[in-house]
């Protein structure tokens, strides 16, 4: 599976024989760390350093501004709808794909992966082509006074599209690798289908689900390009946090922009911490 692959069976590095000379070891470690510092740590440090440039009070004021709070609310709502929907889909799809064999499986998996490599510009545009005033359903929606694009439903749809593959692709390889012996045994012993899923399959995949939900959630809250196309940018009502960051930046309000951005960076860090704990638990479970 082309997935940001999980590391369920990692062994402790200490238990392994290291055969390179110390010099090579430290040399390679130094190069790797320098690369990561250049590409990951420095940009992250830049976000926080600019956010706190004018002190903590200014930082706090920027975050408590009503427009910022409303953007945070919208972002939370969007994630709260998009993530559960993709979770249900992910579980269903991985059950059908991992536990059964059928023709066209590769094609189906590729189609599920597709949103991942579609340019965010395109993912926003397609919903405008369908739900926009000039779109396929435009006249119908207009007649019934239903708003999809340039309103909250459009933002949610675009977010669902962008985060669509995350949970499914996390679960499919995991469930494939676990086979179906346990489920079959449960069925033979008289359990119903749902009982089998909740009592047998679910405990086996629950950390995979958590991992997928975390990544999906992080991406849902951070999506910029696709949401920007369908948002309408109405201040205080259809701006998500990433869009609000751009607006603040464009108002020459750099400190506030980075303060709000630091919220997202902070969220990213928390996400990564929870993910690390999840992985750690998985390893514990396997050993």
């Amino acid at each position: 599976m082309p997935a940001p692959t999980t590391t369920y069976t990692r062994k402790t590095p200490g238990g392994r024989r290291i055969t390179e000379p110390a010099l090579v070891r430290w040399g390679l470690t130094a190069i790797a760390l320098a690369f990561l510092a250049l590409f990951l740590a420095l940009p992250l440090a830049a976000v926080f350093s600019q956010a706190f440039e004018k002190g903590f009070a200014v930082y706090l004021a920027a975050i408590r501004e009503p427009d910022t709070l409303s953007s945070v609310k919208l972002t939370l709502i969007t994630a709260a709808v998009a993530v559960p929907l993709n979770l249900v889909f992910g579980v269903m799809a991985s059950w059908a794909i991992a536990k059964f064999s059928f023709p066209g499986k590769n094609l189906l998996i590729t189609l599920i992966d597709l949103p991942f490599s579609v340019s965010p510009v395109i993912s926003g545009l397609i919903y405008v082509l369908i739900f926009g005033r000039q779109g396929w359903l435009g006249p119908f929606l207009e007649a019934h006074d239903i708003r999809i694009v340039f309103a909250v439903p459009g933002i949610i749809l675009a977010t669902i599209f962008v985060t669509f593959p995350f949970i499914a692709r996390e679960l499919i390889p995991l469930m494939e690798s676990q086979g179906k012996d346990e489920e079959e045994a449960a069925l033979v012993l008289g359990a119903s289908g749902l009982q089998t899923f909740f009592r047998v399959t679910f405990p086996n995949i629950k950390w995979g689900i958590i991992y997928g939900v975390i990544l999906c959630n992080a991406r849902a809250m951070g999506e910029f390009g696709a949401v920007s196309v369908v948002s309408g940018h109405i201040r205080g009502s259809t701006n998500t946090v990433p869009l609000h960051v751009e607006i603040l930046y464009n108002e020459y309000n750099y400190t506030a922009a980075f303060a709000v951005a630091s919220l997202l960076a902070f969220l990213a860090l928390v996400t990564l911490m929870i993910k690390t704990i999840a992985e750690w638990k998985v390893r514990e479970q396997l050993e």
């Binding site: 990951l40 965010p120 951070g222 910029f224 960051v245 930046y249 951005a261 997202l264 960076a265 969220l267």
Partner: peptide, 18 residues
């Protein structure tokens, strides 16, 4: 190890500006 996933989670606009 955890930091490696940062680009997944950081919004692209923030990444670009930074």
């Amino acid at each position: 190890d955890a930091l490696v996933d940062l680009p997944f989670a950081l919004p692209t606009a923030v990444a670009g500006i930074t």
